[in-house]
C-alpha cells in the first residue's frame, strides 16, 4: 500500500501528459475515421477520459482534491451526454434507417 501511494513520485508528470495526449489524439482520429455514429460517440468518450486522467494526475501531483471533484463532474456530464446522444442515435436509426453520419447532410439548411 505504501508502495502504491508513493508510486506517482517515481513517474514524471510529463509521462501522464504524453499518455493523455496520445489517447486524445487517438480519440480525435477515431472521430474523423469512422462513419458509424455510435463509434464516434465512443471515441468522444475516449477523449473525455484522457482529459479526466490528466486532471486526476495533476490533482494527485499537486495534492489538491478539487481536480478529482472536477473529474467527478465531468463524469456526470458525460453520463448525461451519452444518454441524450444515444437517444438521438436511436431516433436517427428509426428515421433514416441508418447510423451513417454522411446521411445527416441537412445541416446546410
Amino acid at each position: 500500500m505504501n508502495e502504491i501511494t508513493s508510486a506517482i513520485q517515481l513517474i514524471p508528470l510529463q509521462h501522464y501528459i504524453i499518455l493523455s495526449v496520445t489517447l486524445f489524439s487517438i480519440g480525435m482520429m477515431g472521430v474523423l475515421f469512422r462513419r458509424n455514429i455510435i463509434a464516434i460517440l465512443m471515441c468522444l468518450e475516449l477523449m473525455f477520459n484522457s482529459a479526466n486522467l490528466l486532471l486526476a494526475a495533476f490533482s494527485a501531483y499537486h495534492s489538491d482534491p478539487s481536480g478529482q471533484v472536477f473529474v467527478f463532474f465531468i463524469m456526470i456530464v458525460a453520463a448525461a451526454e451519452v444518454a441524450v446522444g444515444l437517444s438521438i442515435v436511436v431516433m436517427m436509426k428509426r428515421n433514416v434507417e441508418s447510423v451513417d453520419i454522411n446521411l445527416l447532410n441537412r445541416l446546410k439548411w
Binding site: 455510435i38 486522467l53 478529482q68 473529474v71 458525460a78 453520463a79 451519452v82 444518454a83
Partner: peptide
C-alpha cells in the same frame, strides 16, 4: 491508473459509471 494515482474514489466511480452504466448503454443500443 486512477488507483496508481491513489484516487480510489475516482477509480470506483469510473468503474461503476463508465464500464457499468455507459458502456452497457452502448451495448444495449447496439
Amino acid at each position: 491508473h486512477y488507483i496508481l494515482l491513489n484516487a480510489q474514489f475516482l477509480a470506483v466511480v469510473h468503474i461503476i459509471v463508465y464500464t457499468g452504466a455507459i458502456m452497457v448503454l452502448f451495448l444495449f443500443v447496439i
